[in-house]
């Protein structure tokens, strides 16, 4: 088998670029901890409230420290449960000051759902029996729509919530 000189150069450059890409994402993942979410934490899919985070009173936004928040979400067809406000209405919008560190934790009561804070890197699958979680710093002010981006049934496109990051 014979490779033309130019093909050798091309393959060296091409494979070299792939190695560089891998090194960059590998460095981010293994040294800076930016792996895609994969904690392997399991939960009883028939009773997600057995996990402290998904008890009704703990759903939605919780401030844990200065600039540190947790958002717990119970997903079900076709709704994100973010808890209730003082008047007992379902929360649909979460407001977070800019620059906060936010831990999103989601679990599903029924089928597979998605959880994407559109326009950010918070993009996770939510599967029965597992807790999905991702920590991020909300650095850019704006209004973000949370969308379910994994097909979950006829009301899939009606499954959403909002995150407001204010200055």
């Amino acid at each position: 088998m014979h490779l033309h000189k130019f093909e050798k150069i091309w393959l060296v450059c091409g494979i070299g670029s792939l190695v560089v890409f891998l090194f960059i994402v590998g460095y981010g993942a293994f040294w800076q901890g930016t792996h895609p979410q994969s904690h392997g934490v399991t939960i009883d899919p028939y009773n997600i409230e057995s996990n402290e985070a998904f008890k009704p009173e703990n759903l939605g936004l919780t401030k844990v420290d200065d600039d540190k928040y947790i958002v717990n979400i119970a997903a079900s067809a076709f709704n994100y449960d973010l808890g209730k406000d003082e008047e007992g209405n379902a929360v649909k919008t979460i407001r977070i000051p800019k620059g906060s560190t936010v831990l999103f934790q989601a679990a599903t009561k029924d089928v597979v759902h998605g959880f994407h804070v559109a326009g950010t890197n918070v993009n996770m699958m939510v599967e029965p029996g597992y807790v999905s979680s991702l920590e991020t710093v909300m650095d850019n002010a704006g209004t973000y729509t949370i969308v379910c981006n994994e097909y979950c049934g006829v009301g899939h496109h009606m499954m959403y919530a909002t995150v407001e990051v204010y200055e």
Partner: peptide, 30 residues
């Protein structure tokens, strides 16, 4: 890659293998 129940190191190993499958396409382009 964004699923909760798979170990991220194994995800990365398969990412590396995925990049290997680019090579025959580079050859094809040439």
């Amino acid at each position: 890659l964004t699923e909760p129940g798979i170990d991220p190191t194994w995800k990365f190993i398969q990412v590396v293998l995925t990049f290997m499958v680019v090579i025959p396409s580079l050859m094809t382009a040439f």
